[in-house]
């Protein structure tokens, strides 16, 4: 059986908020390394991979591998009943029909108990090859979100170019064009506010802004985001948590 306790409900709430517009139904795979999820969006253009490691749980017990087939819209409805600071305990049998969720406030005088019906989801698991990226950019997640939102008002797609000068996001649309260039600027005092660029080779790729804006819903998970790019391979956007991560992969656009 599975028994997993999070000190703060906000962790799972934020993860679900971050991915629910990308995927609807997905398996939460529970095993001795924690809770993992991998799912592709309907159009096969974007993939999300999530891992909440056992170290992130106040208590974690999972005797055998359990797949929890969850509709994320339904899960979000149940999670609304949890306050951010509530302790959350997830419980499931070995072949579960339902996931039990218990939310307890810090004063220990309120216990909320919910059951979420599970579904059988036949989900394909994709192997993601190890990639040496041409460029890896680490920057404040709020800044990345702002750039994506601003450019999405002008165009459907953004060109991302990483060179030794910096990383440039540019787009052209019906009303005009826009570009934002970030130069390497490590912040010694507050590393989470700095921008660092590791460049093996110049990279230039084009991506759909609709998806990037969607990924930015994970900004609440981490102050920083890591963007990894290589020519002609999917973009990797990673939000690292203290004990886990949410990663998004996005296929590039090609041709004109």
């Amino acid at each position: 059986m599975l028994e997993a306790r999070l000190e703060q409900s906000s962790v799972l709430k934020k993860v679900v908020d971050a991915i629910k517009d990308l995927v609807q139904d997905c398996n939460f795979d529970c095993n001795d390394s924690g809770i993992q999820l991998q799912a592709m969006d309907n159009s096969h253009v974007a993939l999300v991979a999530m891992h909440l490691k056992t170290e992130g749980f106040a208590l974690y017990r999972c005797d055998r591998n359990i797949a929890l087939g969850i509709n994320l819209v339904s899960l979000q409805k149940v999670l609304r009943a949890a306050q951010n600071e509530d302790v959350m305990t997830l419980k499931a049998e070995d072949s579960p029909d339902a996931l039990s969720l218990v939310f307890e406030n810090s004063e220990n005088d309120r216990i909320s108990e919910y059951d979420l019906k599970l579904m059988d989801i036949d989900q394909e698991h994709l192997g993601i090859p190890e990639t040496e990226y041409g460029a890896t950019v680490k920057m404040p997640s709020a800044e990345f979100q702002r750039i994506c939102r601003d450019l999405s008002l002008l165009s459907e797609s953004v060109a991302i170019e990483a060179t030794k000068e910096g990383i440039k996001f540019s787009c052209t649309g019906d009303i005009g064009k826009g570009a934002v260039t970030l130069r390497q600027n490590p912040n010694v005092e507050k590393p989470e506010l700095g921008t660092t660029i590791e460049l093996q080779e110049p990279v230039a790729l084009t991506f759909s802004l609709k998806y990037l804006v969607n990924f930015c819903k994970a900004s609440g998970l981490s102050n920083t985001v890591t963007i990894s790019l290589s020519n002609e391979v999917p973009l990797l956007i990673e939000y690292e948590m203290e004990h886990g991560y949410v990663r998004f992969y996005l296929a590039p656009k090609i041709g004109d």
Partner: peptide
């Protein structure tokens, strides 16, 4: 508009 690639081209079923 540029053509959007499919992830199946890059990632393999495992």
């Amino acid at each position: 508009a540029p053509f959007q690639e499919d992830l199946y081209k890059y990632f393999v079923s495992s």
